[in-house]
Design a protein around this nucleic acid. Structure first.
Lengths: 216, 216
DNA sequence: AATGCCATTCTTGTATACACAAACATTGAC
DNA sequence: GTCAATGTTTGTGTATACAAGAATGGCATT
């Protein structure tokens, strides 16, 4: 538990939303949450305000707080921005690569290879996250890294859905290989291009996403 | 005044920070702010929590809230990300341009021409903002637009400093012309490239920034 | 004279209480 | 029978009070 009840609650509720325990559109009642976490209403309100400021929930006066439902179109837009930011991270990483970052990328990349080879989509989901985070870190831009991590978190539930799609595991890993090659070769433009298409959701992948969202 | 005191205060304090009334490093005392705005401490805390969640201030447990001092390096990183996002907005705008957006861009562009011609850097500062917002809107991506506006707001004070630099007004306007041409020609890649260099701060412009920050 | 410890004060953090607004239901009138 | 108005209940919004922790200053001791 964090040093501060409000902040702890914020993280707790944020995780509950990102892990789909609280689904989009769901009403978040202050007293219910207060009872559930064994605190008074005040820190709950503080946490909700912060989540509202971040954009995860919406507090409408006298209507209560509800989890924001982004909808397929907005999800697409978010992936579009994510692709752009990851592309930038990749191109910076290619230029600024040092040994530490290189080792981190190599390590997470080979973990991806293992879980992809085993067809373990849950393990790959986790290793993939580490791989991308290693690239953010390699960009050597703290701000960019923070932005990427934040967006990555918000897109997490949908990314998980995507991995369920047939053959996506091996395709994803092959793309990783090319990305690693480009970064290690110092080819920033190529790394950017590859990451943009790797992260973005074009054509059929968008309909896969919509379909899996609807199936939920 | 907004429908909600906490939210109103958040905007109020945010503006005070972005207009450099509260400078980086400054301590924000809850009771002082409460007295100043004629409200109790509770809504002030709510506002501060939200600003903390956004990343404008930092609340350290039992140490109070201070305005975050980004420092030159982080400012540079923020401009770097901004350049990337604006590039994306420009490339999408070039692809998706419709009459409404085209008119909005043309209108704000000619206002820039007037204020640049008159050498009125304060007017240009405002018109320039509208010009860039018109491009965000033309991207037809709500999420991208929101991200751009938010970052634009946070970088506002530094952008203002930059415009003071000699000849920057006319240079900036010439760049705008090329950007408009590329977007209207439907040349997304060119619009992206031009916006990236227009917004980013390379070489001497970075030292200009650092110098003007130090002079403050 | 310097350093360490204790106490006091200030500030944040949490909870409770009170007030206001909105929505829904019930009753009365047309 | 239907519509409107009023009252009650529920839930949000704000403020105040109380508690806990951290920092600073002073005093005492070495």
């Amino acid at each position: 538990m964090s040093e501060n009840v409000g902040r702890w609650l914020r993280d707790e509720i944020e995780n509950a939303i990102l892990s789909s325990e609280f689904v989009p559109g769901e009403r978040l009642d202050e007293t219910v949450l207060a009872n559930r976490f064994g605190v008074s209403r005040t820190p709950v309100r503080e946490a909700l305000m912060q989540l509202d400021a971040i954009g995860l929930i919406e507090i409408r006066p006298r209507r209560g707080a509800v989890v924001i439902d982004p909808g397929p179109h907005r999800i697409y837009e978010m992936f579009e921005v994510m692709a752009e930011l990851e592309g930038l991270a990749g191109s910076l990483a290619a230029r600024r690569l040092d040994k530490t970052s290189r080792d981190a990328i190599t390590a997470s990349h080979s973990r991806c290879e293992q879980s992809a080879g085993a067809g373990d989509s849950d393990a790959y989901y986790y290793d993939n996250e580490e791989f991308h985070k290693a690239i953010y870190a390699a960009s050597r831009s703290d701000f960019l890294q923070e932005q990427c991590v934040q967006l990555h978190r918000r897109l997490r539930p949908y990314r998980r859905l995507q991995l369920r799609v047939r053959n996506r595991l091996s395709t994803s890993f092959l793309e990783h290989c090319a990305i690693v090659d480009a970064i290690f070769a110092g080819n920033g433009d190529e790394a950017r291009r590859l990451l943009r298409t790797h992260v973005g959701i074009q054509g059929e992948r968008f309909s896969d996403l919509v379909a899996s969202m609807a199936a939920r």
